[in-house]
Simulated scan of single mutants.
Amino acid sequence: MEIKKGFADAIGNTPLIRLNYYSDQTGCEILGKAEFLNPGGSVKDRAALFIIEEAEKKGLLKPGGTVVEGTAGNTGIGLVHICNAKGYKCLIVIPDTQSKEKIDLLKTLGAEVRTVPAVPYKDPGNYVKVSARIAEETPNAIWANQFDNVANRLAHYHTTGPEIWRQTDGKVDAWLASLGTGGTFSGTAMFLKEKNPKIKTIAAEPYGSAIYNFVKKGELSSEGNSFTEGIGNGRITENMKDAPFDDAIRVTDEECLEFIYTLLRKDGLFVGGSSGINVGAAVKLAKELGPGHTIVTILADSGARYQSRLYDQDWLKSKGYSIPEV
């Protein structure tokens, strides 16, 4: 019988979906890994599971313990689901700029949630640094530390990469993903490069991320900003170190909106902003490579977590955008 043994066992093995509209338009097979179908609703379920299980194996997380993390939302959601299933407490520190849907969901799931102002990483009040201090001060607690805990990228090296390889019968020309912690991109890229060094592994980046210029010029600098959440970084995390970057493609917020609304109207896929960046970069690459190539990317989470923003006409108008005509 194919019965999953609880929440954790249901993580992964998500389908690879052909994005029909853009595949037909470009002549390439553009495939999206449907990570929004994980039980916690995002790609971050994978990292959350590996981080907790690694802490258990090392004896760092003991019965009744607390998992503390600084997160833009999705990793925290994955962590609290797994903590509930395993009997741990969960404390989440999140920037107050993140969507109301994610903050409310964390509270509904049972996490203790502390919102803090959004400030740069170098600031002691940055949500990542605040979470580290809280973990250190809390008895019987661990700091998940998703940015620099390489259990994050190992989750994708051991699961996402092998799944993509199997699902495509090894016929992959390119892998693209945006980077926040860098775990999804790096772990998957490392696995795929081992299987076939000719596979192009490309960072898909919004404006405001320094990773684009790091890949292009070898320097951590950025221009502009983005309304996307959970992606874009100003530093090289431990999860990004030694990752194989072949190139980087940048996508504007306006383009991101066009891609997520087209996915919704043409393919019936309701996804968040990072998926718009990912698919946008995949389409740009497809046009560059020409027909006949297979390009794989991540559909990281559902658009339901951004309904009050990316899918709300008033919010978009307040930012100078409008719902695209598709």
Rank of each mutant, 00 (worst) to 15 (best):
E219A: 15
E163F: 14
V215F: 05
G234R: 06
F259R: 14
D148K: 11
S178G: 15
I199S: 08
E219Y: 09
G218A: 07
L257F: 15
E219V: 15
C256Y: 03
L154K: 15
N225G: 13
A151E: 09
G224M: 09
G232R: 04
K171I: 07
I199A: 11
G224N: 08
E258P: 04
S222A: 13
T181F: 06
N233D: 12
I211P: 00
I142E: 07
T228R: 00
G161C: 11
I142V: 15
S222V: 08
Y157V: 08
R166E: 05
T252C: 05
L263Q: 08
F147R: 06
I164E: 00
A210P: 01
K241M: 07
S221R: 06
S209A: 03
K193P: 10
Q146Y: 09
L263D: 04
D247C: 10
W143S: 04
G234C: 06
V251F: 01
G232P: 05
T228Q: 12
M190F: 07
I236R: 00
E219T: 15
I260C: 03
W143R: 02
D148E: 04
E255N: 09
A243Q: 01
E163R: 14
T160W: 09
G230T: 05
K198M: 08
N152L: 06
M240S: 03
A174T: 14
E163T: 02
D148T: 09
E163M: 10
I211V: 13
D173F: 11
N213C: 05
V215M: 03
S186G: 09
E205C: 03
G182H: 13
T181D: 00
G161H: 14
